[in-house]
Amino acid sequence: MKLPSMRNPFSVALCGLTATPALAADLSVTLQVPPIDTAEYHRPYVAVWLEREDRSVASQLALWYQQKRGGPAAAAPPMGPAAEGGTKWLPDLRQWWRRGGREMSLPADGVSGATRAVGEYELSFSQGRAPLGDLAPGAYKLVVEAAREDGGREVLDIPFQWPVKTTTPLKAQGKSELGAVTLLLKP
């Protein structure tokens, strides 16, 4: 608890090193893609990201979308790589799109992936490592958005403070396109 003296920059550096346990802090997101009883089911597009209080994006955590479109059209797109690719529907994740999605180049390493079937998925992130990066202490919101072709759209958010002193589970419950979303914060 000794305060580092200004005269001794080394002690500041050491103090920084002793603070490394914070770098091991974890954040994990469990989300459910709920079963939906419909004649024509398409897997939802899902985006997961962290927002600061001013709604700027702190970190893009995950994006599930249809990366390749089936059928002969996919083999020879009429014009441009994205003419009829799965990126066409990304603006339907309306919040994600304006919160940085529209500026991302896809596919994004460690963030984007294929759409997922109905089920529960756990995504784990570590402080200091991509895609979470170095999350500065402060107030954040975890945002999960899902949009489904021939279906609806749902956005859930979970506000939280970072870092945490004790393991903190937080939860939000979807009503249509998302099931339960839990955020587990570890010191």
């Binding site: 441009g80 994205a82 066409k88 603006p91 309306r94 304006r98 529209r102």
Partner: peptide, 9 residues
């Protein structure tokens, strides 16, 4: 028809 789109649309 729409105003918010992705490149190529």
């Amino acid at each position: 028809s729409k105003t918010v789109l992705s490149v190529g649309q």
